[in-house]
Structures are given as structure tokens and as C-alpha cells.
Design a protein around this nucleic acid. Structure first.
Lengths: 125, 125
DNA sequence: GGTAGACATAGAAGGCTGTCAATATGTTGG
DNA sequence: CCAACATATTGACAGCCTTCTATGTCTACC
């Protein structure tokens, strides 16, 4: 059971929350959002997420991800699973290889919740 | 020693990073950003941050923060210290009370790094 | 069928984290 | 100076997290 079928991903639940600075987050909301942040709150996973999100073509092979780290294959696999379980990345198995893709809308929701600079003219310093 | 004097806060260092999806985060950048996310990756701290950031007047007394939780005073104090140490909040002691203020630019930098929706028409949700 | 390769899972070790009770520190007022 | 109060620090403990090695699973190819 890779994900829940009837409930929202953590990543999807975030979209319902107003920015942190708009109004106090409820305890329930905080419990939903924290796992997403926790998933990103590790240097390895943060780099993995960035590698996936920034890769040309939108997807990247797990084998290529592993080459960027001095870590064992199971460790990389574990971190990718954490990102997958909270809904920050999608996976697609093609033959022997597994391709990961960033969920842009999940990152966008999380960024908005944390607090994006107000939409306006270019900031001047 | 509340903070480093010559080096940047984690919160300040984040401002130097492009969004996750723009280019792969370096290992060094990831090591700098992860502590910030880790600080927010706890339900209690996330609510504390939201309470501080959303409070009218821009600041809020620690005593008022504690009343929102079913946790001991030392625990709240500990969580506030975590947020303070990474530079997400400022503190101001006035008499017996301590007032906390959100560092809006730190939240904005972090939000931008994670990935804000591209500036466009108002989202309908 | 058998072998090789890519990825996932299981189990264990060591370190980190959240929480508390107890105590320390600093401030106000008598 | 002492009492009362707000907040911070200390020390301890349970639980979780990151990492590894060993192993399992699935696909491709001969």
C-alpha cells in the first residue's frame, strides 16, 4: 500500500492552509504540514528533491540520483521513499529503472504556506 | 552565546539560494537550509511560528504563546529557542516578559527556496 | 532456466529529539 | 532583602532517524 486511497496526501492537504503569517495554524493543520517539512528537513533529501525538481525533462532516474551522493544504495532508496510517501515526488518504473518526478504543486503549496514574498514589482533590496 | 557574530544565520544564508527547482542545491547549501526546515518540521514549532507571524502588532508575549498548548513551560521555551537559534524569530525582553517577533524575510526566503507558484493571475481556490 | 543488474525491504547500531520535573536566573514590588 | 512571578537552563528518558549490511524482488537477456 504505497499511499492512502481515500485520504489526501500530506502534500495535498497543505493546499488548504493559509500562509503561516495570515492566521494561526490549527493543531490539526500543523500535524498535517509538519511531516512534509520533516521530509525536506534533511540535507540529503533536500538535495534529492532539488535534483529531481530541477532536472531537465522533469524526471530523473534513481540511478543518476544515487551517483550524486557518498551513500549506500539502500540509504538513497530510503530517502526517496520518504519523499514519495509524503507526496513530494512521483515515481514511474520503466523496465529496471525507476524515474522520479517532482510534484511542483506540492512544492508550490508548501512555499506559499511558509510565506512567499508578496506578489508585486521587483524587490529593490 | 545566542548567535554567531561573524557568520550568517541559517535564515540569512537561505537568501543566497535559488529555488529548489531552479538548479540542484549544493551539499553545502543543503546543510545550511536543512536546519531551518528542521526547526519548522515540528507541529508545535510550526504553530508557534504561525502564532508569532500572524499576531497583530507583529509581536507576541511568550506567556500568551504558552497558553495555546498543553505543554510545560520549559518545553515551550525550548521550542522558541530552536526557532530563535536558526533566526526565524527575534526576541525582545521587556521587564519580566519576552516578546517574540517573526523574521518575515527569513520566512519569505525559505518560501521562495522551496518553490513559490510563478507570479501570475490570482489563484482560484 | 539461469545469471546479472536495479531497486526495495529488513534488521540493527548510534545519535538526535521532544518532553518533563527540578532548578536557576532575572525582574517587580514591598 | 525577600517574596512572587516569568522565563531559561539542566538532566534524564523514551522514541525516532539516519545509516549500514544482508537479503529479497523484479526485469532483461542469453
Amino acid at each position: 500500500m504505497p499511499k492512502s486511497l481515500t485520504l489526501l496526501d500530506p502534500a495535498e492537504a497543505v493546499a488548504c492552509c493559509a500562509p503561516l503569517s495570515a492566521r494561526p495554524l490549527s493543531a490539526e493543520q500543523a500535524e498535517q504540514v509538519a511531516p512534509l517539512l520533516k521530509a525536506l528537513a534533511d540535507p540529503v533529501r533536500l538535495r534529492l528533491m532539488s535534483l529531481v525538481a530541477s532536472h531537465p525533462g522533469g524526471e530523473i532516474c534513481a540511478c543518476e540520483l544515487g551517483e550524486s551522493f557518498d551513500l549506500s544504495q539502500p540509504t538513497i532508496s530510503h530517502h526517496l521513499k520518504v519523499l514519495y510517501d509524503v507526496g513530494l515526488v512521483d515515481r514511474d518504473k520503466r523496465g529496471v529503472w525507476v524515474y522520479y518526478r517532482a510534484r511542483a504543486e506540492a512544492l508550490a503549496s508548501l512555499g506559499t504556506l511558509i510565506g512567499c514574498p508578496p506578489a508585486g514589482p521587483a524587490s529593490g533590496g
